[in-house]
Write a protein that binds this DNA or RNA. Structure first.
Lengths: 187, 187
DNA sequence: GTCTATAATAGGATAGAC
DNA sequence: GTCTATCCTATTATAGAC
């Protein structure tokens, strides 16, 4: 079949913005439909299982985007440092310089946490694993590589939370900047 | 007037558990009343402005508890290292070893983020300031002290998010353990 | 102070017209 | 494919009995 005028990717993009800002419970169907620019009934045409399906597909779509825009550089051939730098600028873009929250955060609260348990855990595992592989290439010991990867992910998630709670994206920008410098020091 | 059998502090404690697990929107009055062990109408007797007031008072109460159980050691007299260690075990207790989320996270999403903008920002400022003072005492340069304090808070928040999303409190425990060792190294 | 009952509204979801 | 209209349930909130 032929793709519709606004592609599914675009729709998921719009939906994800609402989920990232308001969380799963906080995102009403009215909000979601409004963000997409359709009536509620039309959304149900595209997502017969409703909000739960929207959340699941948003999570999957974000996972694909994240892998492509953030993790892909880590798997490229070549020297380690520039690849990590690329990931860092990928991260900055992906979270719009600290203005967007992470779905690992906003879709892991309350009922959503139960609903998306597995995809959430998978996403984290994938991210950490990719970072760990890079750290190994950079000469870290196996144990040190695992710790470093975990700390990188923690720093990014923590900086996003703090930026949102303090209403100050600078916190995220500073944290990411420091991360960019820390690969060499950590070995 | 005489204090009621279950004190307000106890009530706020129960309420906070729900907000921390489900977020502001995710916490229904039914849930909240149930956690306290009262009917909804009785809750309104104690919080005439409803959920918004409950959230505000929970935030204030958590702030007081956090200051007493986590930050107070940082202000004690004596050598720096054991005071930081005390804060670390305070943190572990406060978040029940990674099983409880932080209200900075769960009450900063969506509408709640607007509602509690100022108290959230204040809480963060207070925490960071207390840590910065300690770092100064430990011999950090002013600039280095500020960065270190920010990184400590980021690590704790990030570890809590990751633990929740991955459904693995071990992430939090490991992160806190590493933090405990990092005061000396960071100077 | 706490409860039952109930209002009023919002939220998730569906039917059926176009 | 999208809309209007509608249903049902959950949710916030209040009235009034005990």
């Amino acid at each position: 079949m032929r793709p519709s005028r606004t592609s599914r990717e675009e729709i998921l993009q719009k939906l994800s913005q609402v989920f990232r800002r308001d969380g799963y419970t906080g995102a009403s169907l009215a909000d979601l439909a409004n963000a997409v620019g359709l009536g509620k009934a039309s959304l149900y045409q595209k997502f017969p299982d409703g909000k739960a399906q929207m959340g699941a597909e948003v999570l999957a779509e974000i996972g694909r985007n994240f892998d492509r825009e953030v993790l892909a550089p880590l798997r490229e051939p070549g020297p380690v440092e520039p690849r990590f730098s690329k990931m860092i600028s990928g991260v900055r873009k992906f979270y719009e310089d600290g203005k967007l929250s992470c779905t690992l955060d906003t879709l892991s609260l309350g009922e959503a946490g139960q609903l998306y348990r597995h995809p959430l855990a998978e996403a984290i595992r994938h991210w950490q694993e990719t970072l760990t592989t890079l750290a190994r290439e950079a000469g870290f010991s196996p144990a040190r590589a695992v710790v470093w990867a975990e700390e990188v992910v923690i720093s990014i998630e923590g900086a996003l939370v703090l930026s949102r709670a303090a209403n100050d994206p600078e916190i995220f920008r500073r944290a990411v900047k420091r991360l960019g410098k820390r690969l060499a020091d950590s070995r």
